[in-house]
Amino acid sequence: MFKLFLKYASVGVINTLIHWTSFFILNEFISQGLSNVIAFSIAVTFSFFINSKFTFKSNVSLYRYLIYVIFLGVLAYVIGEIAENIAVNPFMTLLSFSLVSLIIGFLYSKYIVFKE
Score class of each variant (00 low, 15 high):
94 L>D: 14
95 L>W: 01
20 W>I: 15
94 L>S: 12
81 E>G: 00
10 S>H: 06
67 I>K: 07
30 I>N: 06
59 N>E: 15
10 S>Q: 15
26 L>T: 06
81 E>V: 14
21 T>L: 15
89 N>R: 05
6 L>W: 10
71 F>S: 11
23 F>S: 03
114 F>K: 09
26 L>P: 10
100 V>C: 03
85 N>S: 12
39 A>E: 10
99 L>V: 15
71 F>Y: 03
1 M>F: 10
55 T>D: 09
6 L>Y: 10
74 V>A: 07
69 V>E: 07
106 F>E: 07
93 T>H: 00
112 I>G: 05
34 L>N: 08
67 I>L: 11
111 Y>I: 11
88 V>M: 13
40 F>Y: 13
4 L>V: 12
104 I>A: 10
64 R>A: 13
36 N>Y: 06
92 M>C: 10
60 V>I: 14
56 F>N: 07
57 K>F: 12
24 F>Y: 14
99 L>A: 15
37 V>D: 04
80 G>K: 00
46 F>L: 02
38 I>H: 05
14 I>S: 10
107 L>N: 12
76 A>F: 06
50 I>A: 12
61 S>E: 10
86 I>C: 08
40 F>L: 09
104 I>V: 15
3 K>W: 01
57 K>Y: 12
113 V>F: 07
64 R>Q: 12
32 Q>L: 06
59 N>V: 08
96 S>N: 02
32 Q>Y: 05
67 I>S: 01
110 K>P: 02
9 A>N: 07
22 S>A: 15
54 F>I: 05
94 L>E: 11
109 S>E: 10
10 S>F: 13
113 V>A: 07
74 V>S: 08
51 N>Q: 06
22 S>L: 06
82 I>D: 11
47 S>C: 08
111 Y>V: 06
70 I>W: 04
61 S>N: 09
50 I>E: 10
93 T>S: 09
5 F>Q: 08
60 V>K: 03
58 S>R: 01
56 F>G: 05
81 E>P: 00
1 M>V: 12
41 S>P: 04
32 Q>W: 00
26 L>D: 11
65 Y>I: 04
12 G>W: 00
108 Y>V: 08
37 V>H: 02
31 S>E: 14
58 S>C: 10
1 M>I: 11
4 L>Y: 05
78 V>Q: 02
79 I>Y: 00
30 I>F: 05
5 F>K: 08
2 F>M: 10
49 F>N: 04
97 F>K: 01
28 E>P: 00
68 Y>S: 08
29 F>I: 10
89 N>D: 15
64 R>Y: 04
16 T>E: 12
98 S>D: 09
103 I>F: 15
